[in-house]
């Protein structure tokens, strides 16, 4: 009866794989411009640099947009519990300061939850001058504000492929033309395909559902490449959107892919952990 060898013992410690939350549906909190369902890990501080060059159709004289029309956002984002995060940022074009809140409502797991849902709410404030050529642009302080709310639903189908559907609503307090509407509704799709352990191709598209302006604006569309090197993630991409905040890229993308109105862009994310130890609980 005492002949139990280690293999029999192993059967005793055998365990069914426990219910596990699906992690890393996307590499970072952004895909290209669009937010993903990802929220930073516990006590993580993310410093983000997002940069977009000018339109490629400016031609060789402007080095296909590298010389001019750049837009940059510097952002600082934090999560304490890995479920709720907030961030602030400053974007050069339109001098926008943005702040957002993001919350993981549901998390996909290997038992019975097939999807992840994250909620997003952001506010944007422009610091442009009130008067431009003695024309008063911003009558009231509230004219400087815009807002965006989003619901993001994603599924990681396997370790390579993830898909997300985004529902977004943007409200702009002050629109460029008197005939413009203040609200825009967007349905977006975001996908990533990892072709090696650390590299992925990404794609995003935002379809605007309502007609809010007579000025021709275009749906935001981007394709990109992600590479991860430890604490950094580099994202290089092409997109027709100059704007880096939700109110801009969803609603006011002024150029389109058909005439090379696209630009080269990159995001760099550096994550710092603000925690000494984790396992002493």
């Amino acid at each position: 009866m005492n002949s139990q060898n280690s293999d029999d013992l192993l059967k005793m410690v055998d365990q069914k794989p426990a219910k596990e939350i699906t992690t890393a549906t996307f590499k970072t909190t952004r895909l290209i411009n669009f937010h993903t369902i990802e929220v930073l890990g516990k006590r993580s501080l993310d410093f983000r640099i997002s940069h977009r060059f000018g339109d490629m159709n400016q031609g060789v004289y402007q080095a296909w947009g590298i010389d001019g029309g750049a837009n940059i956002r510097l952002g600082l984002e934090y999560s304490h519990d890995g479920r709720f995060m907030f961030g602030i940022g400053r974007t050069s074009i339109n001098k926008i300061v943005d702040g957002f809140l993001k919350y993981r409502l549901l998390r996909q797991d290997n038992a019975n939850m097939p999807i992840s849902i994250t909620l997003f709410s952001g506010a944007y404030h422009t610091f442009e001058r009130t008067y431009v050529n003695s024309v008063k642009y911003y009558e009231f302080p509230s004219d400087r504000l815009s807002f965006c709310n989003q619901i993001m639903i994603a599924r990681k189908f396997n370790s390579r492929f993830s898909l997300q559907i985004t529902g977004a609503m943007v409200h702009v307090n002050l629109v460029p033309n008197i005939t413009d509407k203040n609200d825009c509704y967007i349905v977006g799709a975001v996908a990533r395909y990892k072709f090696t352990k650390r590299q992925a191709i990404t794609i995003e598209y935002g379809y605007r559902l309502n007609n809010y302006s007579n000025t021709p604006y275009y749906n935001s569309f981007g394709v990109g490449y992600d590479i991860e090197t430890g604490g950094h993630v580099f994202q290089v991409h092409f997109t027709n959107s100059t704007g880096l905040t939700e109110d801009q890229y969803f609603m006011y993308s002024q150029s389109n892919w058909s005439n090379w109105g696209i630009r080269l862009g990159f995001n760099i994310s550096r994550v710092f952990t603000l925690q000494k130890r984790n396992y002493d609980n």
Partner: peptide, 21 residues
Amino acid sequence: ANGNFAIKASQTAFNFKSALM
């Protein structure tokens, strides 16, 4: 009784200081 030993550790049960790590 015979000195046999067995252990099976779940990889996801390893806790790191950094969530990203």
